[in-house]
Design a binder for these strands. Sequence first.
RNA 1: GGGCUUGUAGCUCAGGUGGUUAGAGCGCUACACUGAUAAUGUAGAGGUCCGUGGUUCGAGUCCACGCAAGCCCA
Length: 1157
Amino acid sequence: MQGSPQFIFVGIAQYILFFKFTRIDAVKTYQEFKQVDYPHIGESVLQYWKENQIFEKSISNREGAKTFTFYEGPPSANGTPGIHHVMARTLKDIFCRYKTLRGFQVKRKGGWDTHGLPVELQVEKELGITKEDIGKNPTAGRAGITVAEYNKKCRETVMRFKNEWDELTEKIGYWVDLEDPYITFDSNYIESLWYLLKQLYEKGLLYKGYTIQPYSPAAGTGLSSHELNQPGCYREVKDTSITGQFKLKGQPNTYILAWTTTPWTLPSNSALAIGENLDYVKVRTFNPYTHLPVDVILAKARVASYFSPKAAELPLEDYRPGDKLIPYQVLEEFKGKSMIGWEYEQLLPIPGLALPHPAFTVVAGDYVTTEDGTGIVHLAKAFGADDFRTLVQQKVPGIFVQDELGNEVPVVDRQGKFLPIVGEYLVAKMQEHGISAHKTFGPNDFYVKNYTQDDEAAPDYKNTDVILSILLKNENKAFKVEKYEHSYPHCWRTDKPILYYPLESWFIKTTAYKDRMVELNKTIQWKPEATGTGRFGNWLENLVDWNLSRSRFWGTPLPIWRTADGTEEKCIGSIAELQAEIDKSVAAGLMTASPYAGKELDLHRPYVDDVILLSPKGQKMFRETDLIDVWFDSGAMPYAQWHYPFENKDVFAANFPADYIAEGVDQTRGWFFTLHALSVMLFDSVSFKNVIANGLVLDKNGNKMSKRLGNAIDPFKTLKEYGPDALRWYLLSNANPWDNLKFNLDGVTEVQRRFFGTLQNTYNFFALYANLDAFIYRAEKAIPVQERAELDQWILSKLQSLILEVEAAMDGYDATKATRAIQNFTVDQLSNWYVRLARKRFWRGDMQADKQAAYETLYECLFTLSQLMSSFAPFYADWLYKNLTEAGESGKASVHLTDWNTANHSLINPDLETSMDLAQTISSLVHSLRKKEKIKVRQPLQRILVPVLSEKFKSQVAHVAELIQTEVNIKEIEYLDDASGILVKNIKPNLPVLGKKLGPKMRFVVAALQGWGATEINQIEREGNYLLSVEGEEIDLLLEEVLISSQDIPGWSVASDQGVTVALDVNVTEELKQEGVARDLVNRIQNLRKDLGLEVQDKITLLVSDSNPLVNASIALFGGYIQEETQAISLSLGKLEGEATVLDMDEFELPVRLIKA
RNA sequence: GGGCUUGUAGCUCAGGUGGUUAGAGCGCUACACUGAUAAUGUAGAGGUCCGUGGUUCGAGUCCACGCAAGCCCA
């Protein structure tokens, strides 16, 4: 090596390096690492990125390039981040990094979700107050807080853990712009929202309507679901339940039975719901109250609850009115589906409450069960959320009347009593049926629950439900009436039962764009696909209008002002418009001054509520007090993050729609929907083209992580122990991100050991020898691939295939495939095969072409890997990249600033890859045989036999013969072809091919082939076909329809796998034995060297005891080899006197003396 | 209750369009290698492919009905 041109060249490079980096170990151009501290790599690379602004450069470098748009779904910073956030954020990060390498400019604006109920609840809890206290003065015994103070507190709370979030984001290497994030409480952000709301308003898509909510007539207020979940709200109560008889039209004397625990809703019945897949029966029997014969319909599974089994045998004709047992007979059975559309007569035909078709028909309801009742559910549109939704979807009208303003109102008023229209009917019916009660009822006295403090213990006490049930019994309209104990929600303030009641809300008419949303959804690539077609697609198919209203305090106010009578209203679409309207209002004298005069503009409550505007007709308009759903905030981020359209119109245009977004699958009806809905309604576009909906991160036993149970994984602790790269790699490679992940730290350890450890070993191996040989990679001086060894060509071929595989996976948003492919290449191909077989090339001799080629090949593999893996393990990849490139000074400042190296197709050599596969298979088979025969690999053997059935196969094996020979320590490979005459062939049907041709006749042919011998096989091989007679039919069997293999060599011990068969010649000749001893000797001396602590390059002298003829013969023949391997400058046989080491040679002992030269 | 997802070795996961003997890694057992060495290799054991029916010459794969777990919605 001394004096070679290569050395001089390298020497200069080192010289330069010495001064540039002032390294102490200046001879070493590639850094070597004994142990690797992965967390430290994460920290130091992060530091490097910060100091050199690598993230900023990765974007500014791509100025003018095609854009790849990513939208950040804003997290809420009022809680600390968990391990599942690492998953979500990693998933977001990798595709942005990948696309950057592929030449796109990828801007990623961070964002924060700041409004909403969770924030408010947290503040309520911390202040020890409830919703009732907000906006009230403190009074005796109660806290109180102004809306202004309350919202101030919310604003403070919501960013409380921003620092933790930012820290996590940085430490896991999620590149997103944290300097200039969008914040949903920002005035500019809200202004954009107002603009969008006004767009919807002007399209007529914003309207005020009803939604069925829990309502307390006693308190006169709606209750939120969280108020309803307060402990003690649900109580066991006894209510009158009625099974009503609804008379069918077109089927004489036939009734549908439907059960309700709220009889007061029966006057509002307008449909009946069945379960499409449930079984129903028609039963002939008698009404237990009127004793009239009736045919009734109910779910088959409920028959036993309505009829006594003892009565089943009784003949119908024997029934006498008053009999305890009522006979019954099942007439027919059918599926619920067949009942859809059946018409029935209105149960209570109250004058003025008639409805047109399709009212009073049977519809399908997905919530119908056979757990209680009749398996048929009575629907009253005004008084049940399910009822309302079903009837809206089925376009069935509900029972409502018009109030004096022309608005539709239910027949129960806000005090919880029937309107006179029902009251009058009931008064008349009570007279008609002679029903007496504890008091005289007037038309205005029918409260649906006891809201009037009536004494329930009073004699003859009857509530509205009871009165209704009596009259239904009398009119042959009730099949069963009984007290029923169940759990029913009560108002936490008044203790009175609540009603489900239609309350006013603002809606976005998403249903108007349903078809378009469905259509555009089909253009989105969902990962996994089923979330798009199923979960999201089905949701769109069953879309209802978006209820926008929230009766809360901390959120985006609805920008609609209305007159008190609701006849005039105005929607405000910008701050400027608001200012102008305020000015008008002030000029008209409605306000003395603008509430914002001299103050900072805050569009939140309570300030915006102080604004009174002037209507066109000169009336006062007040803001509708509702806030809007926070999901509108986040769904509008494509526009509002840029303050569109007030600023950045061009930026928005260049970044809409997103190419890619990712969030948890729980966002399907949340962010994914609101993004989609708004873009379709406002821009007739999707808002994202590709989306990954990731699953949950569970603990290792598959349970939900929770801080309370203590099974939550702390991301910061995990990062500290394992570093970011192994963690990210584990999250991505272990399972598809859309499946739930059972998070197990052992898995992270495994990734670290198996993948990163192996890669690191490979790098260390390279660095160690490259430094010894002073090798530095120079692309321009590299040896052309076709001039390199076959092994090099092979690994480079594999490498190109890997690049293609990673590209395909990443272009299809499949990170798991990509990471697994990289890992398999690194561990199986590069480390366990290439490096192992090529090792000797690195440590032998001078720096000739073969050795240089080996270095270059290994370097190119590692270099390419650093780029391929950089999206997934950004810290380690950059560190590896820097270690590889610093020496040559050829690299960029970071792997993340490089351009993607696409695959070189000309280097892909499928034949060579097949050959190498064969080498691996054959080696494995020989190992297996050696084990079976108990002959260790160190013992050389003469030959293996390989049957070859084609020339191609033979040449493919011959190609890698030397490799196999070295790998399994044999002298030669002998090929057995047809001519040898000793092959035993096997024939099997090629099933996929033959199955299509033969179908049912297959099994006869399969049976026939099993009986075949050499004659038949030879014939079909010779002639290309064979006429087979089965079941009296001639079948022409073609050669390509069968598979012929050789799995046996008579007289030999063989092993087979994947159609390859190998036999091993186990005969150990004297010379082979001697060679074996020589190798054993080398092995023992190497161990001795190591025990003595000798360095690789240390020379020794060796004296071997002249005591064993086998050893003597071995040394005579292989002394040179032994000396070379053990770096012995002398090797002599003789009598050992004094100090000697006794080597255990398995079969004998051998004293030697080893002295360092 | 509905929609969707998942169920394959002790554990984590692969298994286009149905094809004969269902694979990998970890773990376990044994052995080998020893100039990548706190590294590595090889082999072995380990399966009712959640269950039951069905379609088919043939089902882990397709269909139906269940069971179990999870998410979302009621």
